[in-house]
Design a protein around this nucleic acid. Structure first.
Length: 271
DNA sequence: CCCAAGACCTGGCGGC
DNA sequence: TGCCGCCAGGTCTTGG
C-alpha cells in the first residue's frame, strides 16, 4: 500500500499526537509480522517519552532517549490515532497506549510490515543502512542519478524502485514519474540520455510532492491517521489505466510486467 | 557486483 | 452461491 507519500502523510498525522507523550503500555495481539515483534516491546517502551517521530524511506522511526521503534507498513499497513478505544478488528495487531489517553493502532492485513525495536542509531541497522537518498532532498539530483545509472542494464522502472538508488518510489509513482518524464519503463537505465535523467529526477520530485499535498493515494484501503483516504488517485495518469486513452495524446495506454510488477505506459508520449 | 525470481500473507475480484 | 486462479501500494532472500 504505502509508498513515500502515504508514509509521509501518516507521519504528519500521528506526529502531533506522539510528541512528548509518555507510553503507558503496548498491547500486541498478533506479533507475526514480517519479523516477529520483539516479545519485550511493551517493557521496552512503557514509561518512556517520545522525543520525536521521523521517516526514512518508507520506514517510520519513533525516537526515545534509549532507542527507537522502527515501523514499516508493508503493502497493506496503516497507523491510526484513536481518540476513543474502539474494539480491535481482525487485522489490528498492535495498540500503543499514550499518556494522553489516545491510542496508536497498527493495522496490517497482509502482515508484510514490521514493528521493531532498535537500541542506538536505527539508521545503521541492516534494513536502513545502504539506503539511497531521500527523493525530496538535494542529494537526489541529476548528477547523482546520472552517475548511478551508468552501466546499469536493468529496466529504468526497476532501477527507480531500487531503494539503494533512491528510497520511497514504489510501483504507482514509478509508473507516474516515467510517464511525466516521457521515458519508457523498459529502457535500460544505462541507456538514458542525460536530459532524460534530468527530466526523470524532476518528475519523481514533482509527483511525490503533489501526492503528499493530496494526502497520498488510496486505491483500496489506505487511510491516513484520521482514517480518511488520500486524494491523489484521481490524478493518476497511467497507473491502473492500461487500455485507456492517454490524457495527453490519442494513443492507448499499454500494460506489461516488469520485475513481476504491473507497468503502464503511453507508447505515444514515452520514448 | 548485478540481476531475476521466489518468498512472505490476506483479501477482493472476475470467470466458470 | 461457490470455488479457483490471479492480482495487489514492499522488500528481503536466494541463486545464477
Amino acid at each position: 500500500m504505502p509508498e513515500l507519500p502515504e508514509v509521509e502523510t501518516t507521519l504528519r498525522g500521528i506526529s502531533p499526537f506522539l510528541q512528548q507523550q509518555r507510553i503507558e503500555s503496548v498491547s500486541v495481539r498478533n506479533g507475526n509480522l514480517r519479523w516477529p515483534v520483539p516479545a519485550d516491546i511493551s517493557s521496552r517502551l512503557r514509561g518512556h517519552t517520545v522525543l520525536r517521530v521521523r521517516r526514512r524511506g518508507k520506514y517510520l522511526l519513533i525516537d526515545f532517549s534509549h532507542g527507537s521503534a522502527v515501523i514499516h507498513l508493508g503493502m497493506s499497513g496503516s497507523l491510526r490515532i484513536l481518540t476513543e478505544n474502539a474494539a480491535p478488528g481482525k487485522h489490528d495487531h498492535i495498540d500503543v497506549m499514550l499518556g494522553s489517553g489516545h491510542v496508536l493502532r497498527y493495522t496490517d492485513p497482509r502482515r508484510f510490515g514490521c514493528f521493531l525495536w532498535c537500541e542506538g542509531d536505527p539508521l545503521s541497522m541492516p534494513q536502513l543502512a545502504g539506503m539511497g537518498p531521500e527523493p525530496l532532498s538535494p542529494e537526489f539530483n541529476a548528477d547523482y542519478m546520472w552517475q548511478q545509472s551508468r552501466g546499469r542494464k536493468v529496466a529504468v522502472k526497476q532501477w527507480l524502485m531500487n531503494g539503494a538508488v533512491v528510497v520511497g518510489v514504489g510501483n504507482i509513482y514509478a509508473n507516474e514519474a516515467l510517464f511525466m518524464a516521457g521515458v519508457r519503463p523498459q529502457r535500460p537505465a544505462g541507456r538514458l540520455k542525460r536530459v532524460e535523467v534530468e527530466r526523470l529526477v524532476e518528475a519523481v520530485r514533482a509527483v511525490l510532492a503533489r501526492a503528499i499535498e493530496q494526502g497520498g493515494t488510496t486505491l483500496r484501503d489506505f487511510v491516513n491517521s484520521d482514517g480518511k483516504p488520500g486524494y491523489f488517485a484521481q490524478e493518476l495518469a497511467v497507473y491502473g489505466r492500461g487500455g485507456e486513452v492517454c490524457g495527453r495524446c490519442d494513443s492507448r495506454l499499454k500494460e506489461l510486467r516488469l520485475g513481476q510488477r504491473s507497468t503502464v505506459f503511453c507508447p505515444g508520449c514515452q520514448v
